[in-house]
Design a protein around this nucleic acid. Structure first.
Lengths: 226, 226
DNA sequence: TTACGAATCCGGACCGAGGTCCGCTTAATT
DNA sequence: AATTAAGCGGACCTCGGTCCGGATTCGTAA
């Protein structure tokens, strides 16, 4: 499983799902994993680094993923790690890359209700549940990969999620401020929040799931006729 | 203004607002600023540290607030800073303490619509707007004071806000899962989100404000009769 | 008021980890 | 083979956080 994680990041761009009828053109589904073409040694080192990082996580948890440790485990210089991934957050996000793309493929081109074909509200409900459980599975990594507050909402994977929610909302509530509503809905799915509610407050996932469905209902309920 | 910030933190506990009729007993409004009584030298150093930190912010921005710099500016050992505030986040939160307490006093015992006396929905609307503008004013500090994801929702000031929202919600929608709704509403007011929307997306505060009111409406709108 | 003991606090040396830098090496190109 | 752009590595810096021997403060009792 972790193998898939780092292997995927070495593969060419990303198998574009057959263009779904309502896929927004502005949503760049596959920002080339890296600068179009990596020099041979660079690509090799990148793969080794991701593999090493995954191994370290498996053995010592996310906390064990030190930039120096990763470099050492990959038998590579420290500078190389930073050159490739920018910073620790970048490395951890690269580890999540595979799962991000999978999710993205699912809601852009997968089967309903997540994918196109189902009514927008159903897709929205399914989307939240999917994100919820995905985050719950990789909570530690997701938390560790969270960038500093200033960049939290600016990274590509998050933007993709938000764009998708926005698009669905526009189909449901065209009159509303869909950007803001999307932001709100997305905030409900924040890994940090999930962590707090489940691990610190002891809520079961079922309750979070119900909460999402309820929230979607409330948010997409148009002004009752009067 | 910044003077008030650190001065307040030296003052005794906190002037309890006259007990409002609906103040939740569980909400500890004034967690004694520190262990009840500080040794004379400790208190003095604490004040000097907060003063030094405020000065550094004024001169070099939040980024200039290095633990060593603060210690040096306060003419105090580095260990003292950590002993008193735990970590950098603790120091920055202490700087926000005054404003936190002010806000808390306002919505617990101040005049309506923020304080008790107005209908819960109005209080909720006013609450959001107040938090919104307060965060906008101190954005840099708020962002810097944000603890790592694992503790983001666990610190006292945030808990106080959430408790208040929860209480208001319970008066409005007793049947709903008010904890989760409160969490969602609170997320809308997250400084990181405000930062992203205003500074990175260029939204004017008026739009955020309208978004809050709209969100409250949607969330508190009971199931339309059918 | 002074003496004294103990709890508290102070300070700065020390450590680890993230991030930068720059001279050297290596892969692609012609 | 020569040229050049990209990559590499590890020394180096900064900063947050820890630790512990020594100094201060404060309650208590003479």
């Amino acid at each position: 499983m972790l193998y898939a994680v780092f292997m995927s990041s070495v593969l060419p761009p990303f198998p574009q799902p057959q263009e779904p009828f309502d896929a927004p053109q502005l949503l760049e589904v596959g920002p080339a994993p890296q600068e179009p073409c990596l020099r041979a040694d660079a690509a090799r080192n990148r793969a080794r680094l991701l593999e090493a990082a995954a191994r370290l996580i498996a053995e010592h948890g996310v906390a064990g993923v030190t930039m120096e440790a990763v470099a050492a485990a990959a038998e590579v210089g420290k500078g190389t790690v930073f050159r490739r991934f920018g910073d620790r957050t970048g490395l951890l996000m690269a580890l999540l890359d595979h799962s991000s793309r999978q999710l993205q493929a699912d809601f852009l081109g997968g089967p309903p209700p997540l994918g196109p074909g189902a009514p927008p509200v159903d897709r929205l409900r399914a989307f939240g549940v999917a994100v919820l459980y995905r985050s719950a599975e990789q909570l530690d990594l997701q938390l560790a990969a969270q960038p500093e507050p200033t960049r939290r909402y600016a990274n590509p994977p998050i933007r993709a999620l938000r764009t998708h929610i926005t698009m669905l909302l526009r189909q449901i509530e065209p009159a509303a401020d869909c950007e803001l509503l999307a932001q709100t809905l997305l905030a409900y799915l924040d890994p940090a929040q999930i962590h707090h509610l489940t691990r610190q407050c002891g809520m079961p996932m079922e309750r979070l799931e119900a909460g999402w469905v309820d929230l979607v209902d409330r948010v997409t309920r148009t002004e009752p006729a009067r």
